[in-house]
Design a protein around this nucleic acid. Structure first.
Length: 824
RNA sequence: GCCGGAGUGGUGGAAUUGGUAGACACGCAGGAUUUAGGUUCCUGUCCCUUGAGGGGUGAGAGUUCAAGUCUCUUCUCCGGUACCA
């Protein structure tokens, strides 16, 4: 009779099919949510459905999966959902190109990605899947907009906005990257438009203060970026009366102590103030200058190397401290959006003001003597500390802090100024002149003005527009859908029009993590109780490219929802991890470089497990992976070795490991102990390395030691299967089954470490003489300090180095180290 | 400029609270198995000397019995941001 021969290798493809189906059928990763276990929420930044998954997804999503699987095995009830950020421009562009509806491209890609994610072995509860472009989802995006509106946090205003001439839509400040459109890299220009904004600036202080909750739990660089972006400045407002007018120009300055050196004023050209101040004599020059400013692109305008241009407005202001008459200019180096849109210029101590003064022959007065060269001569403004001069009551003072305090006090007394804080953060412009987004639920009525769509009429669904009807025209495609845009006013019943803009897709993604807690809820955006049970998110995982935009907006939303009493916490994401990118040969993968690596092809060749494990093993999760530096084939070999170890276990299920080989058990428990700690601090790459050690040790035990029948070998193989299931879930399931277990390794629990076994018995003690290791002695782990010192001093080699010298000092750190210091 | 972060073999990277630097891999070299290739397995692999010797974590100082780790100075690289008053 012929014995069926076991395959020499595990079949990745077969295992993938088999266990994918098993996990789906048994809803293995659906949380119990019954309160029997402590809850944990693991969240991956949800994907945008642009084609199939790529290498970047492979890295991004495996990290969260390791955490989710680990926590599940550790006995937590884990919520690990996934959905799609499915509104956005690429779908619309594809629809225009193919004469179709954006939904077609979007949902086809979602299906492709969903299949790939399942194959990739993510431990996701698919019953909570959501898509932001579903009416059942965006209904609640609209509902939230209306809540913000009621609270006065959503408002419309006319202003100069960033305009992308290629996307033909406005952009938020955050979407302009070095003067270019974040998406298409076109040069961004300015347009005056009336647009919707969220009043995020009202939350600036709280967004800043609450970062204390995140310190140490979010990457430093992300916190730093948010802090810089919010850009808090402490300073003062100072009022300058305008000569011969009742107008007062208020400026913001961080250095009120240099007020005695304010030699002129500059107002932003686009500001109302400039138009108001300009005298008829100067009007022609001013208008020409204003025109030039508007034409300038963001890049030109932001270039610091540019010479300082500007024109005199024909008027003078009065320095409130000195009573001096100082000229008022306009120049584009002053921004209308920051502070008050006007500055006092202190050329001696501000480089920009100095450059401007020198370009236009304005006076310079030094008010702080720093000991450096006179800025008037050197052309270099002195910004450092020094002694006040030419500053009346401040003269002789050296301390900047008291200088600022003294001036602020004086201004406040005179009623000409007050200390103040300003922020770089601007309100969030959320209108977009595009189709494939969430409609803004506002109706414009000639009688009643802005009227919110009543809640019971939500969602305001998108009309069926496709192909050429979506082509960008500079106004929203929705505006030309007459049947849709023309409606009646909910208040007066008269003819009215819908707001034809859609929302920035960052609005959709600012609350999806709440929705996962109450999937499919038809009465609410989310249930307060659901959110309270699961949130805040315990571990958020995503790319650092969202360090500012998405995270800031989500934090803002959470605070608003807190104020609306819809949630009980103020920060949505307790811990944040930024995974790195996958690059190839030192460069980002791109078609033009021809260095792309196809995830699907990699998986076909090596299997999901090998790719997941390769990604994890390549380095720390937050580092980039250069695909040229890694070896999926070597990782696959390791997985095969692990699998063969499980196959070679011949002891029965439930064998008592205590009867097994103790030295292998020591290795197993030491490594188990280390891996448990390493997972908590998210050093996944080291975990894989330790598992390789364990597999090597087990192999050795099978081949050259106690053999596969030893229960210690079974113990080692079982732990390997459990730990490996975080990284290589399919092969782990196969191992678990080969070891005689059912049903799924994902359903078992993390093994208990035996501390006696994990602790080393024998330790190599290093003996140093004058800081250099001169002997290594094997000692029992529980050796006493006295015994360790005795052994160390008795060592032959140590004796040679001491060479009869007197021992001045002995430091003992039993059992690891004895350090001997001979007398000089 | 300002703010973050990082510099360790040929390569990716290890190294609790300062306590044997280079774990685990890749690559390379040699060997076993194989008709061959591949696979698998074994041995070696920081550098210089090659005897139990010396040097070594970007550079330079410092603290310490002991520094990759702490302090100061400095250089380089990466990321963010920048007429923000």
């Amino acid at each position: 009779m012929s014995e069926p021969t076991a395959p020499a290798e595990y079949d990745a493809r077969e295992a993938q099919e088999k266990w994918q189906a098993y996990w789906a059928d048994h809803e293995t990763f659906r949380p119990l949510d019954d309160g029997t276990k402590q809850r944990r929420y693991v969240l991956d930044m949800f994907p945008y459905p642009s084609g199939d998954l790529h290498m970047g997804h492979a890295e991004a999503f495996v990290m969260g999966d390791v955490v989710a699987r680990f926590w599940k095995l550790r006995g937590y009830d884990v919520l690990h959902p996934l959905g799609w950020d499915s509104f956005g421009l690429p779908a619309e562009n594809a629809a225009i190109a193919h004469g179709t509806h954006p939904a077609q491209w979007t949902y086809a890609n979602i299906e492709t990605q969903a299949r790939s994610f399942r194959r990739y072995g993510l431990s996701v509860d698919w019953s909570r899947r959501l898509h932001t472009s579903d009416a059942e989802y965006y209904r609640w995006t609209q509902w939230l907009f209306l809540k913000f509106y009621e609270k006065g946090l959503a408002y419309r205003k006319a202003s100069y906005v960033n305009w992308c001439p290629s996307c033909m839509t406005v952009l938020a400040n955050e979407q302009v990257v070095q003067g270019l459109c974040e998406r298409c890299h076109s040069v961004v220009t300015k347009r005056q438009l009336t647009q919707w904004y969220f009043k995020i600036t009202e939350y600036a202080e709280r967004l800043l203060d609450d970062m204390a909750q995140l310190e140490g739990k979010w990457p430093d660089r992300v916190l730093a970026m948010q802090r810089n972006w919010i850009g808090r400045s402490q300073g003062a407002y100072v009022d300058f009366p305008v000569e011969g007018q009742s107008t007062v120009i208020t400026v913001f300055t961080t250095r009120p102590d240099t007020l005695y050196g304010a030699m002129f004023m500059v107002v932003a050209p686009e500001s109302d103030l400039a138009a108001e101040l300009v005298t008829p004599d100067c009007l022609t020059d001013f208008e020409a200058y204003l025109e030039r400013t508007k034409q300038a692109t963001e890049i030109e305008r932001q270039s610091t190397e540019r010479e300082k241009t500007g024109v005199f407005l024909g008027r003078y202001a009065i320095n409130p401290l000195t009573g001096e008459r100082i000229p008022i200019w306009t120049a584009d180096y002053v921004l209308s959006e920051y502070g008050t849109g006007a500055i006092m210029a202190v050329p001696a101590h501000d480089q920009r003001d100095l450059d401007f003064a020198r370009a236009h022959g304005l006076q310079v007065r030094m008010v702080i003597d720093t000991g450096e060269d006179d800025p008037t001569q050197s052309g270099v403004a002195t910004a450092g500390d020094g002694t006040y001069v030419n500053s009346s009551e401040l003269n002789g003072l050296r301390d900047k802090k008291s200088g600022i305090a003294a001036i602020c006090e004086k201004l406040e007394r005179d009623g000409t100024g007050r200390s103040a804080v300003t922020y770089r953060l601007r309100d969030w412009l959320l209108s977009r002149q595009r189709f494939w987004g969430c409609p803004i639920p506002i109706i414009h009525c000639p009688v009643d003005g802005e009227v919110p769509v009543p809640e019971d009429q939500l969602p305001v669904e998108l009309p069926d527009l496709r192909g050429a009807a979506l082509a960008p025209k500079g106004i929203s495609p929705l505006a030309s859908a007459k049947d849709w845009v023309n409606t009646t006013c909910p208040r007066c019943g008269g003819l009215a029009t819908r707001d034809a803009d859609t929302m920035d897709t960052f609005v959709d993604s600012s609350w999806y993590f709440f929705r996962y807690c109450s999937p499919g809820d038809t009465n609410k955006a989310f249930e307060h109780d659901d959110v309270t049970r699961w949130m805040p998110v315990d571990q958020y995982v995503g790319g650092v490219e969202h360090a500012i935009l998405h995270l800031l907006y989500s934090r803002f939303f959470t605070k608003v929802l807190f104020d609306l009493h819809l949630v009980d916490f103020t920060e949505p994401f307790t811990r944040l991890m930024n995974q790195g990118q996958v690059i190839n040969r030192g460069k980002a993968m791109s078609k033009s470089l021809g260095n792309g690596v196809d995830l699907g092809a990699q998986i076909d060749q090596y299997g999901v497990d090998a790719i997941r494990t390769t990604v994890v093993f390549a380095g720390p999760p937050e580092d980039d992976i250069d695909w040229a530096d890694v070896s999926p084939s070597a990782t696959l070999r390791f997985l095969q070795r692990a699998w063969r170890v499980a196959k070679d276990v011949s002891s029965p299920v439930g064998s008592d490991p205590a009867t097994g080989d103790v030295s292998l058990r020591r290795v197993t428990h030491r490594i188990l102990n280390d891996i448990t700690e390493l997972l908590d601090i998210r050093r996944f790459n080291v975990c894989v390395a330790r598992l390789m050690e364990l597999v090597n040790a087990t192999r050795k035990a099978i081949d050259a030691g106690p053999s596969g029948a030893d229960p210690a070998v079974r113990e080692a193989a079982e732990f390997t299967a459990v730990a490996l299931s975080l990284f290589a879930p399919y092969v782990a399931e196969e191992m678990w089954q080969a070891l005689g277990h059912t049903p799924s390794v994902a359903e078992t629990s993390w093994p208990e470490v035996d501390p006696d076994l994990a602790a080393a018995q024998v330790v190599t003690m290093a003996v140093q003489v004058q800081g250099k290791v001169r002997a290594k002695i094997e000692v029992p782990a529980d050796i006493s300090d006295a015994e360790a010192e005795k052994l160390a001093l008795a060592d032959e080699n140590v004796g040679r180095y001491l060479a009869g010298r007197i021992v001045a000092k002995v430091i003992v750190r039993a059992p690891k180290m004895v350090s001997i210091v001979p007398a000089a």
